[in-house]
Design a binder for these strands. Structure first.
Lengths: 229, 229
DNA sequence: GTCTATAGTGGGATAGAC
DNA sequence: GTCTATCCCACTATAGAC
């Protein structure tokens, strides 16, 4: 009742304009990509005036930046919480388990789609990000991801000491690619599996991806031992 | 000498207009993506009149289709030749080696960049393809890739009989993602590895990717055994 | 088959009233 | 902060001369 006092007849304006723009942009960018989404589509979906975009954000690039920035922090916060718990449990000298480290990295992205509603577009958005962004946007993203990259690189290193830094970089890159491709083009999986796999079951996907990445990284570690002579 | 008789002062017109458009489009699509590349850029680079595009191809979508179609055949031909050789060597009942099957699938794409000049943009183009194409274009690509998909799925199945069809689909999907991400965003690898890895060395990449995919698929096979009870 | 010219559309951005 | 109206630009596609 209370909440209605100030918003009678304002149903479509319940949220702040700025946030409504971000919400609409997030969904459209995720579904259609950055280049293919026009500001007009965004303002139409947000039920907001076209000029509002240029008022609240200077231009389209800054809007993209804002859309990404809003989500990166919470996702990485969750990652760090999970990794903190693993490291605490392992103590100063105990071992870290590769599967669990990878799960801590991947779970926040996977669960985003289902757990909290306002996060549900992030996975697809992330999938698009890697192939569509260039220049300053990519640099901005790399800067925001650098701390997570460093902490998880170190954790994987600790879990699998046999991995050289080069092999770890390759493995991480391949894993991110597998993740991004699944998030952006999960529907292909329906085709590949002839309908027997449901790509919308993200927890199942998490299990398969953790297994796959673990196997891939351990194989890179073993190969390295062999060629080390 | 002979070849100059008819082409004096025709240096920029040495090639057929249609093919020059395809060449320019291929490079620009690979570098900037499909949506972000304009027909004007293409005709400018091809040193061809703007209207020529709509004369030789009806519209932009058909041009994209033609660019893709021109390369898929030869790549898959090479794949089949390599797989034929493996299957011949293995005979009717002998085993296939997973590493070799994957190498037969990946080598033609990797070597495309370096071996024959006119193929050098295909890898990046392929990387873009999976995340940028929709609807009819994606269907067309799937249709052209279906035979290769079926043959290699069967070969992997033969190499690793323990893999369930579902696990194989997941593994293949992840592997394609790793490949596409490497091809489209290889520069990220420089960043992740802090400059110690050169993503332009495609033969090195092939080795790492074969190892990674092999390890991932074998891990999926083992996991399946465990959960089979 | 190749060109010029242009139609027709939709985009990002802004000026200026309210 | 919000709106209308509009500028200016780039794009795809086509018409029609040569």
């Amino acid at each position: 009742m209370n909440q209605a006092i100030e918003t009678v007849d304002q149903v479509p304006r319940a949220q702040d304009t700025k946030e409504r723009i971000l919400d609409a942009a997030e969904r459209l960018f995720a579904d259609n990509g950055f280049a293919a989404t026009s500001l007009r589509q965004i303002t139409a979906e947000a039920q907001v005036n076209l000029a509002a975009v240029n008022y609240h954000f200077q231009n389209k690039e800054t809007l993209i930046r804002a859309v990404l920035h809003r989500r990166i922090g919470p996702i990485n916060k969750r990652r760090f919480d999970l990794l903190d718990a693993l490291e605490f449990a392992a103590g100063d000298s105990g071992p870290l388990v590769l599967e669990e480290v990878l799960r801590a990295f991947l779970l926040p992205v996977m669960e985003a789609r289902t757990s909290c509603p306002e996060m549900r577009h992030w996975p697809r958005l992330l999938g698009r990000l890697y192939t569509e962004l260039h220049g300053s946007l990519m640099e901005m993203f790399q800067k925001e991801m650098a701390p997570a990259g460093q902490r998880f690189t170190a954790a994987i290193q600790r879990a699998e000491p046999g991995l050289t830094p080069e092999a770890l970089a390759w493995g991480l890159h391949f894993g991110i690619g597998a993740l991004a491709h699944f998030l952006a083009a999960g529907e292909l999986l329906r085709f590949i599996s002839r309908g027997t796999v449901d790509p919308d079951d993200h927890l199942e996907a998490l299990g398969f991806l953790v297994t796959y990445m673990t196997g891939g990284l351990r194989a890179l570690r073993s190969q390295n031992k062999e060629t080390a002579q």
